[in-house]
Design a protein around this nucleic acid. Structure first.
Lengths: 360, 360
DNA sequence: TCGCACGATGTTTACGTAAACATCGCGTGA
DNA sequence: TCACGCGATGTTTACGTAAACATCGTGCGA
């Protein structure tokens, strides 16, 4: 067939047209048709080779492969997506990359997604107002994504949910969201309880708490666990201090703790704030861990290099990311993905910032 | 026209077909044709409204808009990309999100890109071997991106460059790359020189250096600037120590520095390592800044919360990100984007880790 | 008053791929 | 020996959009 005169003529026409279509600047990308022509097969055969379809005889396959290589063929993902209705892309919506947790989770998501042949599209939302989020989702809806992973507080998601494109799965990381979405979360409660129990186990009478910002669900749950663990043990619950996750806010909280003579143990809701607390205690001559014990949360890479190395609750962000991708892909496959919550366990890492209380 | 009997019949047929096409699961997305039918116009008119084309009369426009809203129409970006040849997406290739610089740069890129209506696709490369990088680029080539921003050492890029899809612009952040690519970089040399001059200006006889890993171009340039600044001032150049950017490696370097009685000033190539150095000095009773002054590089958010707050060289990652996007978009527009290097200035932030040397 | 220009809208077509269906030829069993 | 089946390959078509071109009507100048 490839030597048929009529076909030859059609080819010539095709090329001419194409040259025109390509316009004045830059050459058009190589398409299946080009490869097909070069290899002397139909474009459908090229498609089959490209997708590893079994019913292509070896000799044909290698011929096509050679033509692809020669011409530098690369499949056009837009066309593929248009035809198949799948983009092989996950959208990630988040507020900020300034917390370690988000970054690590994102990294794990991107890595696992890549392993599954999925790309990861980022959609940062600068200011967490409802309007902003809604805008982000609208854009995501138009965006080429098969599923969306949300790394943020879900109550902001609520207002935006209406504009979620139907048929796109949503996974929420590290938030509540209960029944409406699939959720992958760290076991905040377990981790916080472990931290408090560790301190009580060392003999401290009670444990103070520097919490994260009010609007953070994670912060809230860590605080709740701290409170109920103390109550269960029948201890006094000291007033709760609040920070905004930053080391600076931790420093401010630490200044107040340094004035409290009765304070011998602190559970800080994240490592960055713990860094600030350590500095405040140090600045006011309160020795850690000899006078005051400090426990953080997250186990960021630097935690082992704090002064002193920080005892903290390790979060497995990588696992969270992996589970998010897993759940997202399952939703893509299933259409009606399950809605459950997956809890990723934590573990406490004991370093040098905790010790028994000073014998009074 | 919209009340024509034949047209009505066509409508009915269309719907039936559509239902079949949608298959058993989930409904097909609303297309321009659906909106057109509902609004009683041609799909081309819908396209015009969708793209804000001027020659649509107001009454028609609002009719179409209403139909879009009613039907929940969302443009199909795959089709749009196929037709226009543009994805409105930037691809980011990087090794790791574990360094602050990469994360901040990425964040700025994503934000600026979003502001320009571009999405950002992440392509992490787990292990920085040549093979890995090549794979990443191959995938990026198939990926739906209009330009690529590379955040990594360029010598690894070299091997991979061959598989770069033609016509896709490349911007390299924070590396060399000279003439082949457009480069946006922080003024490493200026920043490092400032750090050394600051210490010499305080009266220190010379300055030690804890460098980053050998294969890092940034580390190399910071070390070069340190050396040449000392030489220019006619000072001794102490042996250089090396870390791998981590706080832990900084600690190890700090242990060695603590043994050097003559060492009164250290320039550390990044803040994380500086954190480790601070702890090592602290552990060995060397007071900072009274006995030893320490300067970092990066100005990570926590730097002000170190013990003591760290004097460091501030990098404007946000600006780097912004410039990267700017350059990438220019390349998309131009086809032949320029190849120059853009330098983003640094500034030294003086905190409490530096002071004049102890009077011997 | 007639024709032409221009604005608004409709029709056709192509983008690159892959599913669905069609065809062709060869081997095998009755 | 012939028909049938099946594997390999080709042909047709549709995905949703937007550029290019076609058409229609209206208003204005000669």
């Amino acid at each position: 067939m490839q030597r048929d005169g009529v076909t030859g003529e059609t080819d010539a026409q095709g090329s001419a047209q194409r040259r025109v279509a390509a316009g004045s600047r830059g050459r058009r990308r190589v398409s299946m048709a080009d490869v097909a022509r070069r290899a002397g097969v139909s474009s459908q055969t090229v498609s089959r080779v490209s997708n590893g379809h079994p019913s292509v005889v070896e000799s044909t396959r290698s011929q096509v492969l050679a033509a692809m290589k020669e011409l530098g063929y690369r499949p056009n993902s837009a066309a593929r997506a248009l035809k198949s209705g799948q983009f092989r892309t996950l959208g990630i919506i988040l507020f900020t990359l300034s917390t370690t947790g988000n970054v690590r989770t994102l990294e794990a998501i991107a890595t696992s997604a890549a392993a599954e042949g999925y790309a990861t599209t980022l959609l940062p939302v600068a200011v967490p107002t409802e309007g902003e989020v809604r805008g982000a989702f609208t854009r995501l809806g138009e965006l080429a994504v098969d599923a969306i992973i949300v790394i943020m507080e879900v109550h902001l998601l609520d207002a935006a949910a209406v504009s979620l494109p139907p048929g796109v799965g949503v996974v929420v990381a590290d938030s509540d969201a209960g029944d409406r979405y699939s959720v992958v979360d760290t076991d905040q409660k377990g981790g916080a309880s472990d931290a408090v129990r560790h301190l009580l186990g060392l003999g401290h009478g009670t444990v103070w708490h520097v919490a994260g910002p009010e609007e953070s669900y994670a912060a809230q749950r860590r605080a709740d666990a701290w409170r109920s663990e103390l109550q269960r043990a029948g201890r006094d619950v000291p007033p709760m201090l609040r920070g905004d996750w930053s080391a600076e806010s931790g420093y401010r909280a630490g200044l107040r703790l340094a004035q409290e003579p009765g304070c011998t143990a602190v559970f800080v809701a994240n490592d960055q704030m713990a860094l600030g607390v350590l500095r405040a205690l140090h600045d006011h001559g309160r020795a850690v861990p000899d006078e005051v014990s400090v426990v953080g949360f997250d186990d960021i890479p630097d935690a082992g290099s704090f002064i002193p190395p920080l005892t903290t609750v390790h979060q497995d962000f990588a696992e969270v990311g992996r589970r998010c991708v897993e759940s997202a892909l399952r939703q893509i496959g299933d259409a009606q993905g399950e809605r459950g919550t997956t809890l990723v366990p934590t573990r406490i890492v004991v370093r040098e910032s905790t010790a028994p209380p000073p014998t009074a």
